[in-house]
Write a protein that binds this DNA or RNA. Structure first.
Lengths: 131, 131
DNA sequence: GCGTGATTACTCGGATACAAGATGTCCGAGTTTGAGCGG
DNA sequence: CCGCTCAAACTCGGACATCTTGTATCCGAGTAATCACGC
């Protein structure tokens, strides 16, 4: 079990956008270069963030991706859920949701999600700009 | 990102062994039937638990798998680590361990592991026998 | 100067290729139990 | 009754086969800014 590279790219891209915060959209190429990933693949991932309402895309020349309003409230968990989906990490195959094992696993997962929900990208950006 | 089916099988098998607690080893076939999985595949998974020192295997007729000493201390995390490995869920590809994003992700993961570490199979078995 | 059209620089989405890991099967080898058989 | 052999019931481990998912590329289509040109 591993977080996908896509999640890695998405988190880093969001952090970059939050740190930059220009009104101008930033092109996929520029975003992709920083992370050494192909622009087309990154674009695919960012489409998920667009559908989740975190960023918006601008077509045409000087196009790219830009933060949307409430960007200061975006948490790690928001981004991860947009990329990885919101399904729980563990499904008991035989017993379904009544399974005690499953209940414990989901409780543990909740602990992790709680931490990720409280961690906002904008907070992290502040730390960086202090350095 | 998902926990593998193998983890599901391993957790259920361990719970079954803890609830049963006979000195006699229990055959793979019996264990596999309960979970509707092929014996050979389950055997592969249980081999990992053997190497991790949680159970031991007995060859020959009336052979099978049996709990080892300190079985009362076995936690969910022990089992999961034996099956899934101990690598962290998130690796920042570009920046390595200094990456702030990675640090937050690992901190979140720690929260989940802490919960799983405190959850012992023997405790869960008690709850079941009460019902 | 000003509209109009062409060019350019982009993103979007689907189709497709590729790789890796999870899942599952097969089989030969080794091991223990227990039954059968001969002394 | 004892000991030997042999068959049966197991696990073990490696080598495959298969399936799913993540990763990545390619290309045609659409869109917005900018430039060129003609009036």
């Amino acid at each position: 079990m591993k977080y996908s590279k896509a999640t890695n790219y998405a988190l880093h891209t969001m952090l970059y956008l939050v740190v930059a915060t220009p009104n101008k959209p930033i092109g996929v190429q520029q975003l992709a270069e920083r992370q050494e990933v192909s622009p087309t693949y990154l674009s695919k991932i960012l489409t998920k963030l667009v559908k989740a309402g975190m960023i918006e895309s601008a077509s045409g020349a000087n196009g790219g991706y830009r933060l949307k309003r409430n960007w200061e409230e975006i948490s790690f968990l928001d981004i991860i859920h947009a990329v990885e989906g919101t399904a729980s990490l563990f499904d008991c195959l035989n017993h379904g949701p009544e399974c005690l094992i499953q209940k414990e696993m989901i409780a543990a997962e909740e602990k992790m999600e709680e931490h990720l929900r409280n961690q906002k990208m904008s907070e992290l950006a502040k730390k960086i700009s202090m350095v």
